[in-house]
């Protein structure tokens, strides 16, 4: 066939959609790690707190412990998987060097961030949805404000997708990346009110918990699901949204400058 370099049509948003699809295909290709493992892990939590302890203890008046803990477990799935998707994908691209495949293309920094974020949100909310479906075996949730719950889950997913991008930019090796998960995300999740309401803590520890950014996400989501929470929904959503905007701005600045990417 003769080589002919004819005029071709260019589509401004095609790089974004291509990168988004590629990121989705990437986590689907290794779905046993990216989807199945977190769902099994969440199912074990549900079994422990739903089938065994769920009916014996109560931390919130009018709700079983299973009902209390399930919104936290759903959000934990959302947060962990959103973070894991962006952090592992971008870090591996940097580590293996194939990030240059993206750097030579006309993808703009906002498209780059949005594509990674959207794929992470799809994975995160997908895992959250699966955790909720499995949880129906153990307890029925009232879903007081479904749109608010969805908004909070999306916000949590967005925020931790940005955090994952930051971790991938700053991590120099696998150890550093796992430190973000083990020494930052996990303690924040466990101390953020997934398993207990912050209001039952003594004054100092309750005050300290208000500094935990995850507290607002978890409490806001639980509030939307159960109809009650430690904070009003608007405060929780507002603080979480402010965090998301700050983190997105930092990521946009760094990726726009090509910090630790174009060097």
């Amino acid at each position: 066939m003769k080589l002919v370099f004819g005029n071709r049509r260019y589509h401004r948003w095609q790089p974004f959609w291509t990168l988004t699809q590629k990121e989705i295909r990437r986590f689907l290709r290794v779905s046993s790690q990216t989807l199945l493992a977190p769902i099994i892990s969440a199912s074990l939590y549900l079994f422990v707190f739903g089938a065994t302890l769920g009916e014996r203890i109560s931390v919130l008046e009018g709700f079983s412990y299973a009902q209390f803990v399930i919104p936290g477990l759903i959000l934990m799935g959302v947060i962990n998987n959103s973070f894991a998707n962006t952090s592992s994908s971008l870090f591996m691209s940097r580590y293996l060097g194939n990030i240059v495949d993206l750097l030579v293309t006309p993808i703009s920094p906002p498209q780059f961030i949005c594509a990674y974020t959207l794929a992470a949100m799809i994975r995160g909310t997908g895992v959250g949805l699966a955790v909720w479906l499995i949880s129906t075996l153990f307890a029925k949730l009232p879903w007081a404000h479904p749109p608010a719950a969805l908004a909070m889950a999306c916000l949590a997913s967005f925020l931790f997708a940005q955090f994952g991008l930051l971790a991938a930019i700053f991590a120099n090796n696998f150890d550093a990346l796992s430190m973000f998960t083990n020494f930052l995300i996990l303690p924040l999740i466990y101390l953020g009110g997934v398993f207990y309401p912050i209001s039952i803590l003594p004054g100092f520890w309750a005050g300290l918990s208000h500094l935990n950014p995850l507290f607002y996400l978890i409490d806001g989501f639980r509030h939307a699901v159960l109809g009650v929470g430690d904070l009003s929904f608007s405060v929780a959503f507002g603080v979480a949204a402010a965090q998301a905007i700050i983190l997105f701005s930092i990521v946009a600045l760094l990726i726009g400058k090509g910090y630790r990417l174009r060097n």
Binding site: R8, R9, Y10, H11, Q14, P15, K22, D101, T105
Partner: peptide
């Protein structure tokens, strides 16, 4: 196919 999409061109 992915790479041509990155450049914003129709797959040929």
């Amino acid at each position: 196919r992915i790479h041509s999409g990155y450049f914003g061109v129709d797959d040929d």
